[in-house]
Simulated scan of single mutants.
Amino acid sequence: MPTLVIASGNPHKVAQIGAMLDSLALEVVSQPRDLAVEETGSTYAANARLKAEAAARRTGHWALADDSGIEVDALGGAPGLYSARYAPTDAQRIQRLLHELGDSLYRGASFRSAMALADPSGQTVLESEGICRGLILRRPQGHGAGYDAIFYVREAGCSYAEMPDHLKSKLGSRGKAARQLAPELLALLGVA
Rank of each mutant, 00 (worst) to 15 (best):
I70K: 03
L188W: 05
H143Y: 12
P79T: 05
S83A: 14
R174H: 11
T40A: 14
R133P: 09
M163A: 08
T124D: 02
A7C: 10
A63D: 14
L167Q: 10
F151K: 01
Y160A: 15
Q31C: 14
Y152T: 01
S68T: 15
G172L: 12
D165K: 03
D90E: 14
G69Y: 08
F111M: 11
L181Y: 09
R112T: 13
L64E: 13
C158L: 02
G41T: 03
H12M: 06
V125A: 02
A84H: 13
A177H: 08
G69M: 11
R133G: 05
D22W: 05
I6W: 04
Y152A: 03
L21E: 07
A109F: 03
Q123C: 01
V29I: 15
V14E: 06
V5D: 10
D165Q: 15
R138D: 06
R33N: 08
G102S: 05
S173C: 14
I94L: 09
A52C: 11
V29Q: 12
D148A: 07
E71Y: 09
D103Y: 00
K170V: 07
A156Y: 04
M115I: 11
A19N: 12
Q123R: 15
I150F: 02
E129I: 06
R139S: 15
A84M: 11
A25G: 01
A161W: 09
V153C: 00
